[in-house]
């Protein structure tokens, strides 16, 4: 009888502690969320998205950026994209899919020790140019590759 009471007390303490941990974890995202550039990600035009996120839409084509993506993507819902930048002091890498409803797919802000390398998977509505934009020393560099999509990845 007495022992049962101990167990009950213990389990309530554990449950209480996890509850506090969860609420503490929920407090941080609010400060992080403020940095998400809504205007850039909701822009319907690739140039406008670039202006909103990086401050300019004029990019220089560079051979130092390698964009690895399939020539033909059978499934538009999963298109693997790898960007490698050999430009010194690469600050950020952005991926733009020109024909998507919202062209800006992602921006990766890199730290001082981080290499100019990013690999991820994106969705593509239809055949489109995929552009990798690299920001380095306040300038924008880009490289583009056309990816053919057989089945679009944005419909249901």
């Amino acid at each position: 009888m007495n022992q049962n009471r101990r167990i009950l007390l213990k389990s309530t303490i554990v449950a209480g502690a996890t509850g506090i941990a969860i609420s503490a974890g929920l407090l941080t995202p609010k400060t992080v969320l403020a940095a998400w550039p809504k205007a850039a990600f909701e822009a319907k035009d690739a140039n406008k998205a670039l202006e909103a996120s990086l401050g300019s839409s004029s990019t220089t084509t560079s051979g130092d950026i390698k964009l690895k993506a399939p020539d033909i993507a059978e499934n538009g819902a999963v298109v693997p994209v790898t960007v490698t930048s050999k430009i010194a002091n690469t600050e950020s890498i952005s991926i733009i899919v020109a024909e998507n409803g919202t062209p800006l797919a992602a921006t990766f802000n890199l730290g001082a020790n981080t290499k100019g390398f990013i690999s991820t998977r994106i969705k593509m509505g239809k055949t489109s140019d995929v552009t990798a934009v690299v920001k380095a020393g306040g300038k924008l560099y880009s490289t583009t590759k056309n990816v053919k999509v057989t089945i679009g990845g944005c419909g249901g």
């Binding site: 990600f41 999963v78 992602a106 990766f108 890199l110 981080t114 969705k123």
Partner: peptide
């Protein structure tokens, strides 16, 4: 937003749109 920290420093901070595929995969190096 995805943030990666190493030794108290932010190594990589990614801002994503819904364009990223379901069950996202991400790779980077430092």
């Amino acid at each position: 937003e995805v943030v990666c920290e190493h030794g108290g420093k932010t190594v990589m901070n990614a801002q994503w749109n819904a364009t990223i595929s379901k069950n996202p995969f991400l790779s980077f190096a430092f």
